[in-house]
Amino acid sequence: MMNNPKIKSALIGGGAFGVIAALPYINMLNVLCCALYIGGGVLAAYFYLKEQTSPLASPYGDGALVGVMAGVIGGIVTTFVSAALVALGLAPDWSDPATVLSELESLGVEIPGVAGEAMTQEHVEEAILGMELVINVVMFAIFATIGGLVGVAIFHKKDESAE
């Protein structure tokens, strides 16, 4: 599997930026136009193109594919590294209903009674972690795909003889 340049590049790009996106405070860079998610795609595209010895037939198609793979990997890595950091006490516990409720209240968000009750029931931590996993994977995949395409635009060396 590691011999496949697409998977290898996606693991590097998605893995590296997935970890960065999970680190407290550093992950704030993501609010800057999703810089970390897009960066994961760009890095994956860079490593993929670096492995290629000849110009590609469909560079943008490959860039998009590498980007989406990096995004899926990055989303999973981010979610589980965040959970690990919380377990080690190195980051705020967003899966703890009390933390979420107090944070939402401090932001002035009114919690409907039903939602507040639901958040204090059993297995809600697993549900929140599951929702975070889904949204991280989807968002990371969308923006890393764009990153992969931008990476191809920057790093792909064209076959000048074909033009």
């Binding site: 037939a57 469909s58 560079p59 943008y60 198609g61 860039g63 998009a64 795909t145 764009i146 395409l149 931008v150 191809v152 635009a153």
Partner: peptide, 9 residues
């Protein structure tokens, strides 16, 4: 860029 990717495919 995504339009080019779609066009290539």
């Amino acid at each position: 860029l995504p339009l080019l990717a779609i066009a290539e495919m």
